[in-house]
Amino acid sequence: MLDEAQAYENSRDYDCCQIIEGAYTVGDAVYEAYCDGREALPTNAEIEAVAKRLLWRSCKKWDGVESDCVAKGEDDAWDYAGEIPGFQEEYIRHAKEMLEIARKAVSE
């Protein structure tokens, strides 16, 4: 993450030596903001977006049974899944797990 933040800071077209506070530069602020963004927990909107995609990708095969998914898209499938108790919640749980796995992979 620190290498990515440094590369991002170096790629920006600004006067990285401009002083904001004392010896704190614009480049320092960009570096810090990049790291803060990478370490931030995923938002509910991000989690739901991943859950919707997981659901949509599995739409043709629910419970191991081939089906003709009546949903026309991710949102339609998500709305349909909301009619089945616990179905959306299970995909949200999987989405949280996947996002946590991804976070660990990039931070190690």
Rank of each mutant, 00 (worst) to 15 (best):
I92T: 02
Y8G: 01
Y91T: 02
E108C: 05
L41G: 11
E108K: 07
M1N: 09
I101D: 13
G27I: 02
E74F: 04
A102I: 12
D79M: 13
D3G: 13
R53K: 15
T25F: 00
I92E: 02
I20H: 01
D76I: 09
E48H: 04
P85R: 12
E74A: 13
A7G: 07
A102S: 12
Y14T: 06
S11D: 03
V70N: 05
S58F: 01
Y31L: 02
C17M: 03
Y91S: 01
I101P: 01
L2E: 14
Y34E: 01
Y80R: 14
E90F: 00
W56L: 11
V30Y: 00
S58W: 01
C69A: 12
D28T: 00
G73S: 15
D76K: 10
L54G: 02
A33D: 11
S67H: 10
R53H: 13
E66R: 04
A23F: 09
F87C: 14
E100M: 13
V26H: 00
A51C: 10
E9Q: 09
V30N: 00
C69Q: 03
D75I: 13
K52Q: 13
A49V: 06
A77C: 11
W62T: 04
Y91L: 02
C69G: 04
A45P: 01
Q18G: 00
S58N: 09
S67I: 10
P85V: 11
L99C: 08
L54K: 02
E48N: 08
P42Y: 10
E90G: 11
K72T: 13
H94N: 05
S67D: 07
T43L: 04
Y91A: 00
A71G: 12
R38T: 03
P85N: 10
N10T: 06
W56N: 08
K104A: 11
